[in-house]
Design a protein around this nucleic acid. Sequence first.
DNA 1: GACTGTGTGTTAACCGGTTGACACAATTAT
DNA 2: ATAATTGTGTCAACCGGTTAACACACAGTC
Lengths: 322, 322
Amino acid sequence: MATIKDVAKEAGLAVATVSRVLNNRGYISDSTRKKVYEAMERLNYKPNEISRSLFRRKSNILGVIVPRVSHPFFSELVNYIEFYAYQAGYKVMICNSYADSNKERDYLELISSNQVDGFIAAIFTSDSVDYIQPSMPLITVDTRITGVPYIASDHYNGGVMATNLLIESGCKKIAHISGELRMDTLANNRSKAFIDVSVQKNIEYVIEQSKLSTFEEYKKVAIKIFEEHPDVDGIFAGSDIVAASVIHVAGLYGKSIPKDVKIVGYDDIDMAAMTVPTVTTIRQNIEKLGEIAVKTLLDKIEGKEITIENVLPVSLVERETT
Amino acid sequence: MATIKDVAKEAGLAVATVSRVLNNRGYISDSTRKKVYEAMERLNYKPNEISRSLFRRKSNILGVIVPRVSHPFFSELVNYIEFYAYQAGYKVMICNSYADSNKERDYLELISSNQVDGFIAAIFTSDSVDYIQPSMPLITVDTRITGVPYIASDHYNGGVMATNLLIESGCKKIAHISGELRMDTLANNRSKAFIDVSVQKNIEYVIEQSKLSTFEEYKKVAIKIFEEHPDVDGIFAGSDIVAASVIHVAGLYGKSIPKDVKIVGYDDIDMAAMTVPTVTTIRQNIEKLGEIAVKTLLDKIEGKEITIENVLPVSLVERETT
DNA sequence: GACTGTGTGTTAACCGGTTGACACAATTAT
DNA sequence: ATAATTGTGTCAACCGGTTAACACACAGTC
């Protein structure tokens, strides 16, 4: 690997001059600028970014922590985060936490060890929450920690829209498959809304909890509902994947969708349009979520003033399950 | 941020001693080891990894280049890559290339600039292929470049199994929705196999190409087949997502699955089990792919002998579309 | 002729670690 | 008593860049 010294020698110039060219500072004549570029070309020189990072105390790497990237919602989020980070000259490092607090901690410490300039983090175990301080260059997704900026969709409103749609479509008894309600995540606001609207409109309802899991596990939860509450005629699924599992289970019980049972999903991941029937769902603007997450984090890193709460609107996408 | 000097001062020891403790070398008494750890604790010291990287000429970061992480196959691959990389003490940086050669190049140059120790890269534009040299710490997925190690599923065999299944199930005219065949990727071997088997068994067949795209685009391709070849009774979809689009389009044309038309997908991503009907597919062992990719890359980085060709078996997963 | 702006070189310090060489002391083994 | 082992310190060099300070040369301006 050629170093800046090699380039200086090759170009017949001083190291400082080469560095000036590289960093566009001070006075440089066109002729020496050209000499430097030609020498770099000949030696195939690329500045050692590690060394630059050391000096600048900045790696230009952003970290992203998600439960797992293979989950469609998170993979899309990560996708957009990389997109916007790249535009701003940052790379992105990923972490599947698997909700393991040790792994979350391990990655969060990359901030202290200067490997990353900041984190965008989705879902935290309480251990990690304790570790996080408002001064850290970090923003969360769907998690509210005092003093730490976050981004989230307007899940409460999403829950309201979903529940209202079921009720307005004539459902008499509605069910909701939620996430783990003991976790204090903003995503659970959709479940709060479900309850609030149900109570307010005086409609019979049931809730089943399920942690972030697999399709087969979700099916079990759906089966439980169909077994214990055969009269349920509307289901607000906590995610589109859950909705897909409900579609399957409804088939098992010979229920026709949307005639016998109506279903509303959540997220509007690509898959929502791929099932048969296609799922009516609450759309999160994942691209915008990613964009704002990156922008807010970079602002925080640069010490700018930032808004702590970033709540994005959701929208109803009506398809065939209602 | 505390530095190693601060720790040394706090512990009343020399910097070299602290460094010895940190790196487990030379003789260290239990008492000083303890002093160092306590001082680190008090100062909340984390060694600056950038600095270590500089000295060691090693960042312990692996890069992954995929067309886009939001694609289910790649998100699962990335998921497992991160899993195995973490176990080996490496972090992973991601790149969505969007098949843009400039972006691919940009990331590949992180190797020269020492930001990453190596790359696992899926799909390359020809520009990138020209840039790559066998000496680079890089392995490809589904792409064969002379001298560069690669991993891939046994796509030819996958194509054989899929095609045979359709034929053995009684299909008289089969269609295949392939990727871009002008690209010389190993994934296209499934299409070669489709043709070979069709010719060999003397069965009528058609092929439609489609680049890596969206569900809606795939539907158009499927529609083209149903319009131009209404007598097709078996379809080998190039991926599970394509299979899902075929299911939709079959519905549009009033064809019953698997009675009127049988479908075989490819990949066995989670979604294959979520559609109605569930899709029979050729399963790629994505976890193994990720594991071997990481292992091979690390071996290459460490200068060990490695096998250039890593072809993993695929398997047939029969579900409801056949 | 003094002043200002432009262009380049030299030198040294710094970012935050790691390492080898060497010195010296205290134990322990032979 | 001597040698070997263990434990720690000092010092300097190094990884590959960046930067500030200062010196010097040359051009153009007033």
